[in-house]
Amino acid sequence: MCRDCGCEEGNKKIMDQIHGHVHSHDHTHSHSHAAGHSHSHAGENAHSHSHDHSHDDAHSHSHDHSDNHSHQPSVPKTLQLEHKVLARNDQIADMNRAWFEQRELRCINIISSPGSGKTMLLEKSLDALQSKGVHTSVVVGDQQTDNDARRLSGKGAKVMQVNTHSSCHLNAEQVQKVLPDVIHEETELFIVENVGNLVCPAAFDLGENCKIALLSVTEGEDKPLKYPVLFATAECVVISKIDLLEHVDFCIETCVQNLRKINPKVTIIKCSARSGEGMDSWMDWLLPD
C-alpha cells in the first residue's frame, strides 16, 4: 500500500469522509459536502458572522468566569495554522541533530529502493573506515530480519538493527531511542541505512546532516523524475552497480541530466561496491577534509 508518490494530481481535492469519495476541482473555491450538507469555502472565513446572543446592555454579568460557558452557543472560529503535519517528528529530529552536533559527529541517512546496494556499499565502506581508524556507528532499518546488521557486523563498527514492522521508513523517534546504545564516546561517523523505499523515508527527517540516495543502474535513468522528492533533497546521489552497465540499457548521461534538473547542486558519484570502481570518490565524499 506504500504507493508511488506523484504530486501532480488535481489542484484541489475535497474529501467527504462520510461518503468516502474524492472530487477534484481546478478552481480555487471548492464546496465540500459534509453530512449536514454545509458549504465551506476554502480561503474565506466561513461562518465568521458573530452570534446573535451577545449580551444586551441591560444584562450585565457580574461573575467572572472566563469564556467557555456551556450555556452559551459556541462560535465557530477559523484557525489559520500552517502547522506542519510532521511537527513532532521534526522536533525530535532537531533534538537528534543537536545531540550529534554536541558530540561533533556527522550523521548520514542512506535511502534507496530495496536492493539498490545500500548494505553492500556499507560493507565495503566499513572495511575502509576500519582501516582508516574512523570510529563508525550504524543503524539499519528494515521491516523484518537482522540480516543487514549481521552482514555489517565484525567490521569494527557498532551496528544496530531497528525493525519497523509494518512501517516503510524510520522516524526520528526510532533513531532517538537507539542513540545511547549505538553511539559511544569515540563515534565520529553515524550512518543510517533506511528501510528500502524510494518515497516514504524522504519525508521523515531523522536529524541527519545529509541524505544520500542510491540509484542502481538496473533501476532506469528516469527514477529522479518519477520520484523527485528524495532526489531533490539528497546532497549526494550514488549511481550504484556500475559494473553492470554493459548488461543494461542505462544511459548514465541521461540519468545525470535528470538528476541535475531536479537538484542542480547535487554531488553525483558513480561506483560499484562489487568491483571497487569509484569507491575512492565515495570514501572521499564520506570523509571530507
Binding site: C5, C7, E9, K13, H47, V199, A202, A203
Partner: peptide
C-alpha cells in the same frame, strides 16, 4: 471541528489519495 484544510507542497511527497 467543522472543516480542515491541508496544504500539500509539490515536494512534500504526499500521495493525496492514499492520505485521504
Amino acid at each position: 471541528v467543522n472543516r480542515i484544510v491541508f496544504s500539500v507542497g509539490a515536494l512534500s511527497g504526499v500521495d493525496q489519495e492514499a492520505f485521504l
